[in-house]
Protein backbone atom coordinates (compact mmCIF):
# COMPACT_ATOMS: atom_id res chain seq x y z
CA UNK A 1 0.00 0.00 0.00
CA UNK A 2 2.96 2.34 0.42
CA UNK A 3 3.51 3.26 -3.18
CA UNK A 4 5.92 5.99 -4.22
CA UNK A 5 2.97 8.04 -5.35
CA UNK A 6 1.38 7.85 -1.93
CA UNK A 7 4.58 8.82 -0.19
CA UNK A 8 5.03 11.86 -2.43
CA UNK A 9 1.40 12.79 -1.88
CA UNK A 10 1.73 12.57 1.90
CA UNK A 11 4.94 14.58 2.01
CA UNK A 12 3.47 17.25 -0.24
CA UNK A 13 0.29 17.47 1.87
CA UNK A 14 2.29 17.75 5.09
CA UNK A 15 4.62 20.41 3.68
CA UNK A 16 1.83 22.56 2.25
CA UNK A 17 -0.17 22.32 5.48
CA UNK A 18 2.90 23.46 7.44
CA UNK A 19 3.57 26.35 5.06
CA UNK A 20 -0.01 27.59 5.14
CA UNK A 21 -0.18 27.30 8.94
CA UNK A 22 3.05 29.31 9.19
CA UNK A 23 1.77 31.95 6.76
CA UNK A 24 -1.47 32.17 8.75
CA UNK A 25 0.45 32.62 12.00
CA UNK A 26 2.60 35.37 10.47
CA UNK A 27 -0.46 37.15 9.10
CA UNK A 28 -2.16 36.99 12.51
CA UNK A 29 0.98 38.22 14.30
CA UNK A 30 0.55 41.60 12.57
CA UNK A 31 -2.39 42.31 14.85
CA UNK A 32 -0.08 42.20 17.90
CA UNK A 33 1.71 45.33 16.68
CA UNK A 34 -0.64 48.22 17.27
CA UNK A 35 1.60 51.25 16.71
CA UNK A 36 -0.38 54.33 15.72
CA UNK A 37 2.16 57.10 15.08
CA UNK A 38 0.97 60.66 14.55
CA UNK A 39 2.69 63.49 12.75
CA UNK A 40 2.10 67.06 11.73
CA UNK A 41 1.02 68.57 8.47
CA UNK A 42 0.95 72.20 7.44
CA UNK A 43 0.11 73.92 4.19
CA UNK A 44 2.57 76.64 3.18
CA UNK A 45 0.95 78.25 0.19
CA UNK A 46 -1.95 77.49 -2.10
CA UNK A 47 -2.32 79.04 -5.54
CA UNK A 48 -4.78 78.47 -8.36
CA UNK A 49 -3.87 78.98 -12.01
CA UNK A 50 -5.83 78.34 -15.18
CA UNK A 51 -4.33 75.73 -17.49
CA UNK A 52 -4.98 73.43 -20.41
CA UNK A 53 -6.25 69.93 -19.78
CA UNK A 54 -5.29 67.27 -22.33
CA UNK A 55 -7.79 64.64 -21.20
CA UNK A 56 -11.02 66.30 -20.32
CA UNK A 57 -13.79 67.74 -22.39
CA UNK A 58 -13.30 71.09 -20.70
CA UNK A 59 -10.08 72.27 -22.26
CA UNK A 60 -9.56 75.26 -19.99
CA UNK A 61 -9.42 74.20 -16.39
CA UNK A 62 -8.16 75.57 -13.11
CA UNK A 63 -5.30 73.82 -11.36
CA UNK A 64 -4.35 74.23 -7.70
CA UNK A 65 -0.73 74.21 -6.55
CA UNK A 66 -0.08 73.31 -2.95
CA UNK A 67 3.13 73.72 -0.96
CA UNK A 68 3.10 71.59 2.16
CA UNK A 69 5.30 70.47 4.99
CA UNK A 70 5.06 67.03 6.56
CA UNK A 71 6.75 65.77 9.73
CA UNK A 72 5.94 62.23 10.79
CA UNK A 73 7.98 59.41 12.22
CA UNK A 74 6.34 56.28 10.86
CA UNK A 75 9.16 53.90 11.78
CA UNK A 76 7.14 52.20 14.59
CA UNK A 77 4.97 50.75 11.83
CA UNK A 78 7.82 48.61 10.58
CA UNK A 79 7.87 45.12 12.06
CA UNK A 80 8.77 41.74 10.66
CA UNK A 81 5.65 41.49 8.53
CA UNK A 82 5.75 45.01 7.05
CA UNK A 83 6.71 44.97 3.40
CA UNK A 84 6.18 48.64 2.73
CA UNK A 85 4.20 51.73 3.63
CA UNK A 86 2.24 53.74 1.11
CA UNK A 87 1.95 57.28 2.48
CA UNK A 88 -0.37 59.72 0.76
CA UNK A 89 -1.54 63.28 1.23
CA UNK A 90 -5.12 64.04 0.32
CA UNK A 91 -7.32 67.11 0.07
CA UNK A 92 -10.96 66.89 1.18
CA UNK A 93 -13.43 69.54 0.12
CA UNK A 94 -16.93 70.03 -1.23
CA UNK A 95 -17.56 71.49 -4.66
CA UNK A 96 -19.98 74.28 -5.48
CA UNK A 97 -22.63 71.74 -6.57
CA UNK A 98 -22.30 69.63 -3.41
CA UNK A 99 -19.93 66.97 -4.75
CA UNK A 100 -17.69 65.68 -1.98
CA UNK A 101 -14.11 65.27 -3.15
CA UNK A 102 -11.03 63.53 -1.86
CA UNK A 103 -7.97 64.01 -4.07
CA UNK A 104 -4.51 62.55 -3.49
CA UNK A 105 -1.93 65.19 -4.38
CA UNK A 106 1.26 63.55 -3.16
CA UNK A 107 2.40 60.08 -2.20
CA UNK A 108 5.47 58.13 -1.31
CA UNK A 109 6.38 54.46 -1.02
CA UNK A 110 8.53 53.67 2.03
CA UNK A 111 10.30 50.34 1.94
CA UNK A 112 12.78 50.56 4.81
CA UNK A 113 12.52 51.53 8.45
CA UNK A 114 15.45 53.95 8.00
CA UNK A 115 13.42 55.95 5.47
CA UNK A 116 10.28 56.07 7.58
CA UNK A 117 11.07 59.30 9.42
CA UNK A 118 9.35 61.73 7.09
CA UNK A 119 10.48 65.36 6.93
CA UNK A 120 9.19 66.57 3.61
CA UNK A 121 8.77 70.06 2.26
CA UNK A 122 7.20 69.64 -1.12
CA UNK A 123 4.49 70.50 -3.59
CA UNK A 124 1.76 68.44 -5.15
CA UNK A 125 3.03 65.62 -7.34
CA UNK A 126 -0.28 65.03 -9.12
CA UNK A 127 -2.64 67.41 -10.91
CA UNK A 128 -5.07 68.95 -8.47
CA UNK A 129 -8.25 69.99 -10.24
CA UNK A 130 -11.96 69.95 -9.59
CA UNK A 131 -14.52 67.88 -11.50
CA UNK A 132 -15.96 71.20 -12.64
CA UNK A 133 -13.88 73.71 -14.56
CA UNK A 134 -13.12 76.03 -11.66
CA UNK A 135 -12.40 76.08 -7.93
CA UNK A 136 -14.80 79.02 -7.54
CA UNK A 137 -17.23 78.69 -4.60
CA UNK A 138 -15.80 75.41 -3.31
CA UNK A 139 -15.49 74.96 0.45
CA UNK A 140 -12.11 75.33 2.17
CA UNK A 141 -10.17 72.06 2.06
CA UNK A 142 -8.87 69.86 4.84
CA UNK A 143 -5.59 68.11 4.11
CA UNK A 144 -4.82 64.68 5.54
CA UNK A 145 -1.78 62.46 5.69
CA UNK A 146 -2.78 58.81 5.56
CA UNK A 147 -0.89 55.60 5.19
CA UNK A 148 -1.49 52.06 4.03
CA UNK A 149 0.57 49.33 5.68
CA UNK A 150 1.25 46.49 3.26
CA UNK A 151 2.35 43.16 4.75
CA UNK A 152 4.50 40.35 3.35
CA UNK A 153 1.46 38.19 3.89
CA UNK A 154 -1.89 39.08 5.42
CA UNK A 155 -4.31 41.95 5.70
CA UNK A 156 -3.78 45.48 4.38
CA UNK A 157 -4.46 48.19 6.96
CA UNK A 158 -5.15 51.91 6.66
CA UNK A 159 -4.81 54.77 9.09
CA UNK A 160 -4.47 58.54 9.34
CA UNK A 161 -1.25 60.14 10.62
CA UNK A 162 -2.04 63.85 10.45
CA UNK A 163 -4.73 66.35 9.54
CA UNK A 164 -4.64 70.12 9.16
CA UNK A 165 -6.21 71.93 12.13
CA UNK A 166 -8.11 74.43 10.04
CA UNK A 167 -9.59 74.14 6.60
CA UNK A 168 -7.66 76.13 4.02
CA UNK A 169 -9.71 78.18 1.54
CA UNK A 170 -8.88 78.13 -2.17
CA UNK A 171 -7.77 81.53 -3.48
CA UNK A 172 -9.21 83.02 -6.66
CA UNK A 173 -7.45 81.97 -9.83
CA UNK A 174 -4.65 84.25 -10.90
CA UNK A 175 -3.23 84.66 -14.37
CA UNK A 176 0.13 83.04 -14.95
CA UNK A 177 3.05 85.40 -14.56
Amino acid sequence: MYSAYQRINNIFALLSTCIFALLGAIALSSFVFTADPKGSLSIGSLKVYPGRSPHFKQLRKEYAFVNFEVHADLSPLFHWNTKQLFVYLGAEYTSADGTRNDVVIWDRIIRRKEDANLNVKGRNKYEFRDVAVSFKNVTPAHYTLKYNTMPYVGVLTYSEAARTDNAIPFPLAQERV
Binding site: F86, Y88, S95, T99, N101, V103, D107, Y126, V131
Partner: peptide, 10 residues
Protein backbone atom coordinates in the same frame (compact mmCIF):
# COMPACT_ATOMS: atom_id res chain seq x y z
CA UNK B 1 -4.61 49.88 -9.21
CA UNK B 2 -4.97 52.31 -6.33
CA UNK B 3 -7.75 54.91 -6.05
CA UNK B 4 -6.26 58.41 -5.93
CA UNK B 5 -9.40 60.53 -6.43
CA UNK B 6 -12.97 60.10 -5.28
CA UNK B 7 -15.81 62.46 -6.13
CA UNK B 8 -19.17 61.67 -4.53
CA UNK B 9 -21.54 63.36 -6.93
CA UNK B 10 -24.88 64.63 -5.69
Amino acid sequence: HRVIETHDVV
